[in-house]
Amino acid sequence: MTTVTRRTFRSSPHRDALATWAAISDLLSRTNTGAQQELGSVAGIASSIIADKACENSPILVSCEGPQTRIYCLYDDDAIDGSDANEDVLGFDPLKGDWSISLPCEPDDLGWVQSALQQKSNRITAHEKTEAKKQDTADNSQGATLEIDLEGLLEP
């Protein structure tokens, strides 16, 4: 079972798409300064995806040796209100070890986004935004059950 952490960033009109990517990059690379340049190299591509609202219902998937981080964006009135935002610092390094990031994008844009990302990074890729929803559903349907041995707890 994979541990998952969620963060939700306020985007347009609270901040533009490039500033949103900068805030996401700052969160991810806070403890991994080596990744800052790589995240910066894809800023234009990532901000295009954010501007298209692909991250509204489909997350940016950040995988590493630790928990997976799923990052969503808020737009319009939700971004202004900000009550559903959670941009808090993570309690772990989300880019620890062999990390990767997968950006959601519209099906029509997937080809050019993958090609553009491939020229900049081998760790940052793109997926069709509907793929993450399928994965969420699969994760939820395969939920683990927790059994507690109450008798074992009472033994000295």
Rank of each mutant, 00 (worst) to 15 (best):
I60H: 08
D81Y: 00
L153W: 11
T125K: 15
A17Y: 00
L150V: 15
L90V: 12
S29Y: 04
S41K: 07
K133P: 02
C105N: 00
V42Q: 02
W112G: 01
L110G: 02
W21E: 12
D136S: 15
S12G: 02
L146N: 00
I71F: 12
D88E: 10
L61K: 07
T33S: 12
P59G: 07
A35I: 10
E38C: 04
A116D: 03
S12D: 06
S12L: 07
D16V: 14
G152R: 11
W112Q: 10
A138S: 12
E56D: 06
G82Y: 01
A126D: 00
K96M: 13
Q68E: 15
L154T: 14
D76C: 12
D78V: 11
T20N: 08
R70P: 09
S47Y: 05
S25Y: 01
L39Y: 03
K53P: 03
Q142T: 15
S102M: 12
G143I: 04
I49T: 05
D78Q: 05
V89G: 14
A51Q: 06
A126K: 05
S47M: 07
A43V: 06
I80G: 15
T3L: 10
H127L: 14
P107I: 13
K53T: 14
E38T: 12
W112L: 09
L150Q: 07
F92M: 03
N140C: 01
W112R: 10
R7E: 06
C73H: 12
C105V: 01
A79W: 03
R30I: 02
F9H: 02
